[in-house]
Design a protein around this nucleic acid. Sequence first.
DNA 1: TATGAATGAGCTTTCATTCAT
DNA 2: GATGAATGAAAGCTCATTCAT
Lengths: 209, 209, 209, 209
Amino acid sequence: MTAETKVRARRKAFRPDEILDAALEEFTRHGYAGTRLDDVAARAGVTKGTIYVYFPSKELLFHAVIRKFQHPLLNDVHQFIDISKSSAIEFLRAFLRFIYEDMQTSRERREVLRLMIAEAERFPGLAEDYHREVIAPALETLREVIRQGIERGEIRRSAALEFPEIVIAPAALMHLWLLVFSNRLPMDADRYMEAHLDLLLHGLAQPEA
Amino acid sequence: MTAETKVRARRKAFRPDEILDAALEEFTRHGYAGTRLDDVAARAGVTKGTIYVYFPSKELLFHAVIRKFQHPLLNDVHQFIDISKSSAIEFLRAFLRFIYEDMQTSRERREVLRLMIAEAERFPGLAEDYHREVIAPALETLREVIRQGIERGEIRRSAALEFPEIVIAPAALMHLWLLVFSNRLPMDADRYMEAHLDLLLHGLAQPEA
Amino acid sequence: MTAETKVRARRKAFRPDEILDAALEEFTRHGYAGTRLDDVAARAGVTKGTIYVYFPSKELLFHAVIRKFQHPLLNDVHQFIDISKSSAIEFLRAFLRFIYEDMQTSRERREVLRLMIAEAERFPGLAEDYHREVIAPALETLREVIRQGIERGEIRRSAALEFPEIVIAPAALMHLWLLVFSNRLPMDADRYMEAHLDLLLHGLAQPEA
Amino acid sequence: MTAETKVRARRKAFRPDEILDAALEEFTRHGYAGTRLDDVAARAGVTKGTIYVYFPSKELLFHAVIRKFQHPLLNDVHQFIDISKSSAIEFLRAFLRFIYEDMQTSRERREVLRLMIAEAERFPGLAEDYHREVIAPALETLREVIRQGIERGEIRRSAALEFPEIVIAPAALMHLWLLVFSNRLPMDADRYMEAHLDLLLHGLAQPEA
DNA sequence: TATGAATGAGCTTTCATTCAT
DNA sequence: GATGAATGAAAGCTCATTCAT
C-alpha cells in the first residue's frame, strides 16, 4: 500500500463526514428548502450523485446533519469544575462562564439552534431529540448545582429548582442575539455576563435595610 | 349600488390584506424558500396571478408580510399601567405580566420572530428593522422604569440599566420554547412567570443575615 | 360644447390611431411575440382594457398596424417627376433619388419591412398584401419608365423589363443595411447612390474600344 | 463495450448539436420570443431540463444557434474558381453562380439572415459578428476580383471597388424574396441570374454609337 | 464507489384576455 | 367608451432524484 493510496483510502473513509460538514454550512445559510444539493456537493468536493451513495434523500441528509452536530453541551463540564471542592456560587459562576465562552466560539451549536427554530414545525421529531440530547442534560446539571447550594445554605430556596431555565435565560438570549444580528449590533459580552451574574445572585430589588 | 356590489368592493379593498394573512401563515409553516405561492393564493381564495397584482415578487411579498405583522410590542402599555401612580416594582410586575400574556395570545408575534431567526441571514435588512421597530422601543421603556425605580430608591443601582434585556430574558426564552416545542413539552406559564419575578427581584443568593 | 370638451372629443376620435402608433413602435422594437399589450397601452396613454375596445385580439391589432403603415411607395412620385418632359434616364435618376431619400427619412417604412421579414412565416397573408400594395406598384412604375426609355432609344433592350427589381436592388440592400446595422456601420449614402446609378447605367465591363 | 453503449456514447456526444439543430428550426419559425423551449426539446428528442444541461438560458441558446449556423459564405470558393487561370469576368460569372446556387440550397443561411433582421434590435452584438464573419469576407473577395479585373483592363475603373455590395445586391434581394414569399410568388431564378449578370456587365444605357 | 447526463415535476413569473363597474 | 382587478394558461427555469457507466 503506497502512501498515496493511504491518503485516498483515508479520504474515502471520511467522505460522508465531509458531506455532512458541507451540508451543515449550506443548511444553516439557506435553510432546509433553500439548500441545493449541488451546492452541498460542490462544497464537499464531490458530485451530486455521490451524496446519494451515502444518504438516500435530502431529508435524511438533513437528519444526519442535525444528529452529527447536536453535541451535548456539558459533556466535559465536570472535568473543568469539581463541585465538591468549591462553593455552589463559585460553581455557578464557572458554569455560566463556560456557557458564554462556548456560545461565542461554537458556531456549530449556534447554527444547529437556528435550524431547530426554523425547521421545528416541519421536523417535530428533531426538536424532541434536541431537547433530550442537549437541553435536558444541561438543565439537569444546573438543577443539581442549585440543589446542593440550597443544602449548603448558600442559595436560598426558590422556584429556581423547578425552572432552572430562568437561570440561564440571559445566556440563551445572547445566543439568539448573535444568530439574528450576528456582527451587526455589537454588544460587550463580558460585561453582559457580569451583569447577568450580579442580577442573578442579588436580584433587582433594594434589600430592606 | 346593489348589495353584491358592496360586498365585492369591500372584498377588493381587503384583498391585499387577505393575501398577507395567508402569506404569513404559509411562510411561518414552511419558511421562505419552502412556501409555494400556489398555496398562499389558495389560502387567500384568489389565483396565483392576483398575488402579482399587488406584490411584484415573492421576496417583496415576504417583506410586506414582515412589515405588516411586526407590531411594536408596547404601543399601549402606558394606557394599562400608569407609572406615576404605582411603585416601580408594581409597574415591573404589570409590565412582565403584560408581556407574558401577549406572548401566549399573539401567535403572530411569535411567528414573526421565528421568521426573523430563520431568515435573518438571507434578509439582513429585516432584522435591523425588527430591532428598531420592536426590540429597541421595548428595551427603552424598560430602561425608563428601572431608572425611575432607582431614583425612588426601590431598585438598587446595577448594570440592569445598561442591559435591560437581561430583565426580560426569561420571557424571551419562553417565547422560544413555545416556538420550538409548541404544545409538545408543556410548561406551567403562570408559575414560570412567578418564578421569574421572584428571582428577578430577590436573586438567587441567600441574603447575608 | 366647451373647448375642453372638444379636445376630449378629438382625442377620443383619434384614440385608435394613437393605439396603432404605439403598437407600431412596440412591435418593431420587440417583434410580434415579444410585444406586451401593457406596453402598447402605456405608450398610447390608455389602459390595456381600452385596446380591446377597438381591437379584438393582439393578432388583429398587429394586422391593423401593418395595414395602416404599409403606404404605397410611389403615391406621389408622378407629381414630382413628369416623365413626358424628361429623358428616361433623367427620370430614372430622379426616381432613384426619391427612393433613397424616402428610405433615409421614413423609419416607418423600414420598420414595416422588418416586420414583414420577421413575421412572414406566421402571417403569410400579410406578405401577399404587402406585395400587392407596396412592391408591385413600384415595380410597375419602374417597368413603365424602362419601356418608354427603350422606345425612345435611350435604354437598351434587356431583361431589365422582365426583372425591374434588379434595377433597384442596391437601394433595397441599403434599406436592409439600415435595419440590421442601424447606425453602427456607417456608409456614405450619397456616394453609394451615385455608384449605384453609374453602374446601373454603364455596367462594369470595359466598353470595347 | 456493447453495441448499445456505443450508440449511447455517440448520441451523448451529439446531444448539444441535436439541440442546436432543433433550436434553429424553432427560432426561425417563431422568432426568438415566440419559440418555446418545450418545442425545441421535443424536436430534439430530449426533455426541457436537458437543454439547461448544455445552455444556461434561452438567450445563450439563441446565441449558440447563431454562432453555429453563420458559416462564412466563401470558405471554399477558391477551390472552385482559380482566378489566375480565368478572366476576371469569367471569375465574376462563376462567383455569382456560386452565390445563387448556395442561396437556393442552403435554407440554413437564409434562416440565419432572417433571424439577424428580425432580432438585430434586441441582440446588436450578433449583427456585428455576422458582419465580420459572413459579410465582410465575401465583400473582400469580390473587391479583390474587381481590382484584378481593372488591372488587366477587363473591368472599367468605377466606384464598384468602393461599394462591392452593389455588385451582389440583386442576389441579396432574391435571398430576401425567398424569405418573405418563400414559394408563394415564384420567380425564374436562372433567368434572373442571367439578367443580373447582363445588366451588371453592360449597364442599362444604350451605348453611344 | 463515484460519476454526471438526463429527467420531469414543480417552481416563480408573465401576459393576453375577460368582465363588472 | 374606458377602466383595471382578476384570471389562468403557459412560459422559462430549477433541482431532487435516477441510472448507465
